[in-house]
C-alpha cells in the first residue's frame, strides 16, 4: 500500500502534501474561506455540517491524485474514524429542541458521523465500501488493518480520514489516499505523517 497524497485542515488553514494551500489565520468563517478559495462550485457545501465540509474540501484536493486506471465507482473504499462522533452537530440538534423549541430535521440528518462518507460518495459517484470507526485517538494500526481488508475485498484504492469537529472548536481533518501496491505501509510512517501535521 502506497500513500499517493495527503491533506490536513484545521482552523488555521488547509495543507496538501504538507504545503499550505490556503491560510485562514484570523478568518472568522474559515471553512467558507477555504471553500471560496478552492474554486469548487458545489452549493450543497453550505448545507453540510463541519465534518462533511472539512472532508469535502480535502477530498476535492485528493481526488485529483486518483490514477486514471482506477475503477473509482466500484473499487474505492472509504475508511474514516474519529473520537467525538458527530458531537458538534449533536449539540446543535439538542439545542434546536431543548432551547429553540423545534427539533431541526436538517441538523438531525447530520447527527451521525458517517454522513460525511455519504456526502463524498454523492459528490464523486463512489458506490464502494464505507465504514466509520470510533477510536480514542488517531490509530494508525486501525487504518492499516482496514486498508488491507479493503484490498483483500478487491478494492484498489482507499480514501482514509481522521476527522474531528468538537464543541470546544478543536477541528481537524487528516485525509490520505492509499493505492494498492506491493509496498508496505508501516504504523510509524503513518503516525509520523499525522504528527507532522498535528504539530505544525
Amino acid at each position: 500500500m502506497r500513500i499517493l497524497a495527503h491533506s490536513y485542515i484545521q482552523p488555521n488553514g488547509i495543507w496538501l502534501n504538507q504545503t499550505c494551500v490556503k491560510s485562514t489565520v484570523g478568518e472568522e468563517n474559515w471553512l467558507k474561506a477555504i471553500y471560496q478559495n478552492s474554486g469548487v462550485e458545489y452549493p450543497k457545501f453550505y448545507k453540510m455540517d463541519d465534518l462533511s465540509k472539512m472532508s469535502f474540501l480535502s477530498s476535492e484536493l485528493l481526488r485529483k491524485f486518483i490514477p486514471a486506471e482506477i475503477d473509482q465507482e466500484n473499487e474505492l473504499a472509504l475508511i474514516f474514524a474519529n473520537h467525538s462522533t458527530s458531537q458538534l452537530t449533536d449539540t446543535k440538534f439538542h439545542d434546536s429542541y431543548a432551547v429553540q423549541g423545534n427539533p431541526s430535521p436538517s441538523l438531525f440528518v447530520y447527527t451521525l458521523p458517517n454522513i460525511l462518507t455519504g456526502e463524498l460518495c454523492i459528490r464523486n459517484k463512489w458506490y464502494g465500501e464505507n465504514c466509520f470507526y470510533i477510536s480514542e485517538q488517531f490509530d494508525a494500526a486501525l487504518f492499516i488493518d482496514q486498508i488491507q481488508f479493503a484490498f483483500n475485498h478487491g478494492n484498489s484504492c482507499c480514501l482514509c480520514g481522521w476527522v474531528e469537529a468538537k464543541t470546544d472548536g478543536s477541528h481537524e481533518c487528516f485525509l490520505f489516499l492509499v493505492l494498492l501496491s506491493e509496498e508496505k505501509l508501516d504504523i510509524n510512517t503513518l503516525n509520523n505523517l499525522y504528527k507532522t501535521y498535528k504539530n505544525e
Binding site: 452549493p43 429553540q100 423549541g101 423545534n102 427539533p103 431541526s104 430535521p105 436538517s106 440528518v109
Partner: peptide
C-alpha cells in the same frame, strides 16, 4: 433552488418558529 425533502421539513419548522 434545488431544495430537497429535508428542506421541505425545515420549512415546516420555519413556519412554526
Amino acid at each position: 433552488l434545488g431544495l430537497d425533502s429535508i428542506d421541505a421539513l425545515e420549512f415546516i419548522v420555519l413556519l412554526d418558529s
